[in-house]
Simulated assay, not measured.
Amino acid sequence: MTAAEREARGPIDALIAAEGLPASYRATIEAHWRPLAHAIAARATGLPLIVGVSGSQGSGKSTLCRMLEALLAEDHGLRVATLSLDDLYLTRAARAELAASVHPLFATRGVPGTHDVALGLSLLDAVRAGQAGLVFPRFDKAADDRAPEAEWQTLTAPVDVLLFEGWCMGARPQTAADLAIPLNRLEAEEDAGGIWRAHVNAALAGPYRALFDAPDLMVMLAAPGFEAVLGWRQLQEAKLRARSGGGMSDAELARFVMHYERITRHLLADLPGRADVLIALGEDHAVTAARHRADQTISTPQPRPS
């Protein structure tokens, strides 16, 4: 397929427009996402392939997954779906019970311990079994609760590739020594005894281990540092306030992001050496490098039939 033929295809252009991305984003698609889709397709033989996509808040996981869905379908004829870890959040009532019985910080969604891991594992097992008619839950962040089942996504056919994305995908537990010292004001003032972070860590060592070990291939979108993550979230929230008049203030957002700081920093230090594909990002979200774990650069796809 020639460059002119690719340019003429509508779905990618429509997706770029729907995501509010500049026309220049096509260069990122051709340089990085199309080769990544090719590498995934090469692995998608036999049983359904589960691809983990890990990246901090604001790193662009959802956009990447939408691009990969389109590219894998158009270029390789594969049936692809995306499951977000966010959609596995416990209901608001269940988190309230957890907050009352374990620690008040569990009222806030996000960290390990606030997801329905059993549901996630059952869905992954069903995907691997090639089941049709699977129903993926949806979480309504505006309501801070699981969406009504009428709004859940139904997969009419088995999928060849499942993209399983989440901000803490692939996280491993820390040592007791790592947990002992509070990392930020939230931990120091609201978890002085370390109960919350110890419970989160135990979840990573226990139920989440099988969930995060499930992917056959792990892709990481690596932020240049936690400071960039905070900046990305501030930008997202500013856009939300401008669009809807709602959203968190800068002070509220700073506290909210502190819930995720420990695991985000740990992932940035630990996961790059374990990820099958590492996509390094600059502060402007531009891809600075995309490499296989064995340092093989993903830059150019092999020829495909036109």
Rank of each mutant, 00 (worst) to 15 (best):
Glu151Pro: 02
Arg138Phe: 04
Val159Tyr: 05
Gln153Ser: 06
Asp140Ile: 01
Asp144Cys: 01
Asp145Gln: 06
Trp152Gly: 04
Lys141Ile: 04
Arg128Phe: 02
Leu134Met: 14
Trp152Cys: 06
Asp144Met: 02
Val161Tyr: 01
Asp160Ser: 06
Leu134Phe: 09
Ala129Val: 12
Asp160Val: 03
Pro137Leu: 03
Phe136Leu: 15
Ala132Asp: 10
Pro137Phe: 05
Ala126Tyr: 14
Asp125Met: 06
Gly133Ser: 13
Val127Ala: 10
Asp145Asn: 12
Glu149Asn: 02
Ala129Met: 10
Glu151Cys: 01
Arg138Trp: 04
Val135Tyr: 05
Ala157Gly: 10
Ala132Ile: 09
Asp160His: 10
Asp140Tyr: 05
Ala132Ser: 14
Ala129Pro: 01
Ala150Met: 02
Glu149Cys: 03
Thr154Cys: 15
Glu151Ile: 01
Leu134Ile: 11
Pro148Ser: 05
Ala129Asn: 11
Arg128Met: 07
Asp144Gln: 01
Asp140Cys: 04
Leu134Gln: 09
Gln131His: 15
Phe136Gln: 13
Leu134Trp: 11
Ala142Val: 13
Thr154Gln: 15
Lys141His: 15
Leu155Arg: 05
Arg128Gln: 12
Phe139Glu: 01
Trp152Leu: 00
Asp160Lys: 02
Asp140Thr: 04
Gly130Asp: 00
Pro137Asp: 09
Glu149Trp: 03
Ala132Val: 12
Ala132Tyr: 08
Ala132Thr: 07
Gln153Pro: 03
Gln153Tyr: 06
Ala157Phe: 12
Glu149Gly: 02
Ala157Asp: 15
Gly130Trp: 08
Leu134Pro: 07
Ala147Leu: 09
Ala142Glu: 14
Thr156Glu: 15
Phe139Arg: 04
Arg128Leu: 03
Arg146Gln: 13
Val127Ile: 12
Leu162Ile: 07
Gly133Thr: 11
Ala126Ser: 13
Glu151Ser: 13
Asp160Glu: 10
Ala150Lys: 13
Glu149Ala: 11
Asp144Trp: 02
Gly133Leu: 08
Asp145Trp: 00
Arg146Lys: 11
Ala132Leu: 06
Arg128Lys: 13
Leu155His: 05
Trp152Glu: 08
Ala157Thr: 13
Arg146Leu: 10
Pro137Ile: 05
Gln153Asp: 00
Ala129Gln: 14
Val135Phe: 03
Val135Gln: 11
Pro158Ser: 05
Glu149Asp: 11
Thr156Ser: 14
Asp144Arg: 00
Asp160Cys: 02
Thr156Cys: 10
Trp152Lys: 00
Ala147Asp: 04
Asp144Leu: 04
Asp125Ala: 13
Pro158His: 04
Glu151Thr: 06
Ala150Asn: 00
Ala157Cys: 12
Gly130Cys: 09
Thr156Trp: 09
